[in-house]
Amino acid sequence: MCGIAGIMYKGERDGLHAAQALIDMLDGCQHRGPDSTGFALYGQATKGELKLRFFVGQGDEAVAAVARIQETLAQHHATIIEDEHIGDNYRVVVEFGGDVQEFAYAMEHAAKVISIGESLDIVKDVGGAHEVDERYAVHKFTGTHGLGHVRLATESDVKPEAAHPFWATGFADIAIVHNGQITNYWKMRRRLEQRDFEFRTDNDSELIAVYLADKLSQGIALKEALRTSIDDLDGTFSFLVSTKDEIGYAKDRLAVKPMIMYENDDLIAVASEEVSLNRLFPGQALNTKEPPPGSYNTWSRST
């Protein structure tokens, strides 16, 4: 129950605006989800480096969590390059050359991971777009593309870890924002758990992320993975997925959840409502498109 947004700038130079654009777009549809707001942002990747972000809270709880994180990092030969404690988060950049999935699961057992990636950094917390921006300086992020989400908590609590975007637990650089409900959630989850995938929440958005990441790790193209998701996932959904260099969407066959998109020479923007798109172009009438039911598509960075 929420609003979603995604943006990809085609040129390198405009990339600086992705985070600010998402803040504006989410502020435009905050009525769809006042409880929490989140961003999946893709910055510059450096070979051999991973960015990790955790929920650690404040005070003693945070000190203990950070100690556990640092211990686990050392155990996995991940060398800390830089780190900071910001808001309720602990953000760390490490030098790492091993198997990401095994490393990620180990980190998950040490603390609450928000995201892991060479390029991906997820920021999410309770409150509106501007509040989260204020707490985590989201507008300062540089990057060419990203996703955003505003959430109205229905089935799970208003906790920062239940906020979106969801990282595909165990897979670097894959994020998802989703509006809807996957009704064959447990069936699909058990199928993936049979194959030793781990889940951190009971949230159906995490399932979509892991489902897609699994396909990608098998060498299947994102577009093809989105196509099969429409057959495999049951329920009502409009979701956006992002990787290091692509964003994509899929929409259920019943067209229950809204989605609207706009594309020009500079950018592709997708949102739940046109009012979000219009935030990027105040006073202009946009030539938007509503994707049909059961459709999917991807865009990749031209560079």
Partner: peptide, 12 residues
């Protein structure tokens, strides 16, 4: 009204 998010807009 296909979800709590649409319902907000309907109430309004």
């Amino acid at each position: 009204i296909l979800g709590a998010d649409d319902l907000v807009i309907k109430v309004e």
